[in-house]
Design a protein around this nucleic acid. Structure first.
Lengths: 194, 194
DNA sequence: ATAATTGTTGACTAACCGGTCAACTGAGAT
DNA sequence: ATCTCAGTTGACCGGTTAGTCAACAATTAT
């Protein structure tokens, strides 16, 4: 499972072969086909596992006990530190696998992977929506439609992640929190930062 | 050339084989290798050709003779109509090939494709930067740092395009102009729309 | 102990991959 | 007419791919 995540994340879904996965996992192909019917099934389980590993951390960051704008700040911070660690580990910026793999497999006939990816992405967007709604309720931002704002913010994050991967440059993420504030029309950024 | 663009755009760079390209182009593999040394070279020429086809249209949309915020509105509009046409033609939303291919090949050893893609993306970002600077000069928006704002806006567009492809849903783009206004802090959206 | 179940393996196939090459084609130059 | 040469072709090579399978090992149940 670890092998497949690394290969698909660092390389791409399409160009990752079952032979490669088996080699890296130290397992023979016969064993692979004993547990999985195809690469799709494996990727599905891999995605699910990855998500369940991140979920507790996101739940903590977006806990309703934390002031809403601080949630977003912590999220940006967490994301940056996470990417930095990955970068040190693999030698290059990898961004979010849900985005890169999602974009790659979106036109395939078998829709199972897309569905799983969209499902997880939708979970993630909801963290943002709730935080924005709470911020709006507290009068911290101007976001009459939190759902719409969350979609915009989510697209922005998605773009940042993709850009950082393409440019292989972590600095791209440093804009994240400023961009977030501008996007949300934060009324007093200095107060949040303090 | 048309064949390779279609295949790489609809599928992915990695999973598009030279055999497929040759089949679709109605050409034998020997002929392919008479003109190109590898798939990378072909993709390079394809990207360049694609860019030189879009360039005049973008030059028109972002002409300095057009009011700056109208440029952005026209760009969003153009992008939506273009994607809608592609969608009707291929049966699914494909987004921007520079993003999807760029994200896919970013970790490869051969850096030529990445460089070309980053070069073209940087050109596109400059359109935004100029428009934002002009808008700022006209007092239409609050963007003290046009370059930084353009990066944020560009990331947002990139995210929208990726999202639309992943979700296979054109409606994602409909947020584009609103998101743009919010991001730029447009002082009087109603006046722009009118 | 032994039977049953669960997991592992290497050898195999058939299709496909990138890439090469000598032979061929056709159009324009002399 | 025929020479030249850019462009085309199909056959071919070695390596890799996804996927299968009968035989084997390890664990568990009885």
């Amino acid at each position: 499972m670890k092998a497949v995540r690394e290969l698909i994340w660092k390389g791409s879904y399409g160009s990752t072969t079952i032979d490669q996965i088996c080699d890296k996992a130290g397992v023979k192909k016969g064993s692979f086909y004993y547990f999985f019917d195809s690469k799709v099934e494996l990727a599905l389980v891999g995605m699910e596992e990855d998500w369940s590993q991140h979920r507790p951390e996101l739940d903590a960051i977006f806990s309703p006990t934390v002031p809403p704008l601080e949630r977003l700040r912590k999220y940006c911070d967490y994301f940056y530190r996470f990417q930095a660690e990955i970068c040190k580990q693999y030698g290059c910026v990898l961004g979010c696998p849900l985005f890169s793999v999602g974009a790659e497999v979106s036109t395939q006939e078998d829709h199972r992977l897309q569905q799983k990816i969209q499902e997880i992405l939708e979970y993630k967007r909801r963290y943002l929506e709730t935080a924005i709604r709470d911020a709006q309720a507290a009068g911290l931002v101007s976001a009459p439609d939190p759902a719409a704002k969350s979609r915009i913010l989510f697209a922005y994050y998605q773009g940042l992640a993709t850009q950082a991967r393409i440019q292989n440059n972590l600095d791209v993420f440093k804009d994240a929190i400023n961009g977030t504030y501008e996007l949300l029309g934060v009324k007093n950024p200095a107060a949040v930062a303090a």
